[in-house]
Design a protein around this nucleic acid. Structure first.
Lengths: 201, 201
DNA sequence: GGGTTATTTTGACAGTGTCAAGATCGAGAG
DNA sequence: CTCTCGATCTTGACACTGTCAAAATAACCC
């Protein structure tokens, strides 16, 4: 289980992951097949099965990687942000992350893993942890500013949904053009901000 | 196995669509194959190709159907809604639509059609029209209540993104549990409402 | 060395979408 | 009524896909 000794290939595990990630970026999930991957790595079709239980496991590993990046971003971005500008920057960073790695984002939150496949425990952990971090930081950020009977967890879920929905519409290119990113995201930020500073009756 | 008017089949077109929709509901897109469909309709594997150019065309037809329903709902729901309660009801209806037909919703907005496949002109038309209807109705609803320099189109996009994102997280079961639908959706409604009645500085 | 174990390969199977070519049958033209 | 035509359907085939079983290979430990 070490990576220094080279028995047959060297370390297929990492090579596979790396190659899969670049292929994902270029062709999307539907262009990612284990056989193609194996060929690129110079091994037989079934070689990957000794490093990943099945395709689902590979995809989960990829998504886990991406979630680690996102989690880092969250902690970095919302760490010492004491003001509304902190949240604004976070939203912008989030949008940047999603639009610069659309295929990874799709994999992280898409049905391929969460509905049709089954997410690894490792993936679930990092995914939930990321959200928890966001919720916690947001909670401390909003401490005292929230009216009674308003659970900060709900605010976290609702605001995440807003940004997430925006990303989806953006990435899939349905209702929001990429040229409108700036204005629409500003509007979304305003949406969140208004709710935070002055909640509904 | 229906035998009404069987010269060849009767009308495969509608049978195919209908069967596809029930199969979609039960098994999701990934469980929907043309061959399975053909078998259920009692015809050969390639028979459907004389009614739909390819699988993408079939999926687009399904999505178009669903969009027609959504469009109807939008026009019905936001027709004479003059107050905030109208918007609230709309959001609730939208959430109901999405959670009761999760697979259809996924197909309507998912990457299967919009990214990996290519959407039919018919589909694009109805999809854009639905959103336009929403935007228009929302605009008349908010007339005069919006501050200067706030484009109602942006508000429409942002609010749609909020509800859409909520639906996605709900359907894919990532961050929002189904038991929390009520509270989270209320929070989301509050989010939108706050922005509408009292915009951010 | 031998033996164990991890790694890789070959072969095979059941699926998938889709194309090409032939078969069938309803209906309108003569 | 016959006969052709065009819509509809079928058979066969191809290139893919994920994944399993069993055999082969190479590295490791004793």
């Amino acid at each position: 289980m070490t990576q220094t000794g080279r028995y047959h290939h060297g370390d297929l595990h990492d090579t596979l992951l790396q190659e899969a990630n670049t292929l994902l970026s270029k062709q999307g999930v539907e262009g990612l097949s284990l056989r193609k991957l194996a060929e690129r790595a110079g091994v037989s079709r079934t070689a990957p099965y000794h490093h990943f239980r099945d395709k689902n496991a590979l995809l989960c590993a990829l998504a886990t990687q991406a979630f680690r990046q996102l989690d880092d971003m969250i902690n970095r971005q919302l760490h010492q942000a004491g003001s509304q500008e902190g949240i604004q920057d976070f939203v912008r960073e989030y949008l940047r992350f999603a639009t610069e790695n659309p295929e990874q984002y799709e994999l992280m939150f898409g049905r391929t893993i969460w509905k049709s496949g089954d997410p690894t425990d490792e993936l679930k952990n990092i995914a939930y942890r990321s959200f928890r971090h966001y919720a916690e930081r947001l909670a401390t950020l909003l401490e005292g500013r929230l009216p009674a009977k308003t659970d900060s967890l709900r605010v976290a879920q609702a605001s995440w949904a807003t940004v997430h929905g925006l990303c989806r519409l953006l990435i899939d290119g349905i209702y929001v053009n990429r040229e409108d990113i700036e204005t629409v995201s500003e509007q979304s930020i305003a949406l969140i901000m208004a709710a935070l500073s002055r909640p509904a009756p």
